[in-house]
Write a protein that binds this DNA or RNA. Structure first.
Lengths: 151, 151
DNA sequence: ATCAAATGTCTTAGCGGCTAAGATGTTTGG
DNA sequence: CCAAACATCTTAGCCGCTAAGACATTTGAT
């Protein structure tokens, strides 16, 4: 670790930064293909990655948008058929945002391709190497999450 | 490769997606801390990662913004002291956007922390493992770039 | 039970950034 | 030398965002 040449760190930093920029671009492309704005796609992604349906307010918190903006986001997503509003029967003030299951396919298209890319990449590694990589990804993701939260 | 259990792919997909969402969030935080919009920070990032100074038009191409929007972006970045306009002496129609070196420090703060995180993560791996990880990052970045370009 | 305060979402006004189109200034080629 | 191409800037109009407050529902204190 202390013996790590600075160039290694340089290269890793470069990869991270490149990935970072590519990711932002990728999301923009995905959104475009889905006929959504980047904001709308981001919120849909949040709703899809959550365990259960999110409330409008939770989406506002997670996305950093105002509640008013989220109303507009859900309006557009609902009109486009990606989600639907369901009033929470236990607390009728809340609006649950359910992702329409059928339309997960449309939306899956770009992610299918991303998955194919991943398979192609992983094909270049044997089981032991995959374990190392997964350990790295796990650690990196956790560390990055902490970093993002208190940045 | 054919023997790869589906769960591995699932987990890797999940990591990618999580990284992806975290990255978008991270950029938003960085921008906020720098007093910039996400758009402005994205363009500044482009300018910083380029070899030499970019022209306004090139920034428009790379960012996907209109030339008019880029004029506004550069105005704001210049007013904030992050870049300055320099007319290209060889073609005075062009405007070169030079990143102000002194202010790389301000801007470096969040990236410094990200770098620290990276060092911490890499510390958990020995040299052989780092080589595997770097091979993965290299391949993944290249593949992802191709994917983003023709998505 | 009742009602004030808290909570969750929606509505509205105003602002700012984006696009598209065209203006301005510069270069290129015939 | 001038017309066409090129690079950037300007402007008008649109759309999404924020902030503030309206509305509906729930909670908690009395």
């Amino acid at each position: 670790m202390f013996g790590m040449e600075p160039e290694v760190l340089e290269r890793f930093t470069w990869y991270m930064r490149e990935q970072s920029a590519l990711t932002v671009m990728f999301h923009a492309r995905v959104a475009e293909q889905m006929g959504l704005s980047a904001t709308d796609e981001k919120c849909l992604d949040l709703a899809m990655r959550a365990d259960g349906p999110l409330t409008a307010g939770r989406i506002a918190d997670l996305s950093g948008l105002s509640t008013g903006a989220v109303t507009g986001v859900i309006d557009r997503l609902e009109r486009a058929g990606y989600v639907r509003r369901v009033r929470d029967p236990h607390d009728r003030r809340k609006v649950l945002v359910e992702v329409t299951p059928g339309d997960l396919d449309k939306l899956g298209a770009p992610f299918e391709k991303a998955r194919d890319s991943l398979v192609e990449v992983l094909g270049h590694f044997d089981d032991d190497e995959l374990q190392v990589i997964e350990r790295y990804l796990k650690l990196q993701t956790e560390t990055f999450r902490r970093r993002v939260i208190d940045t």
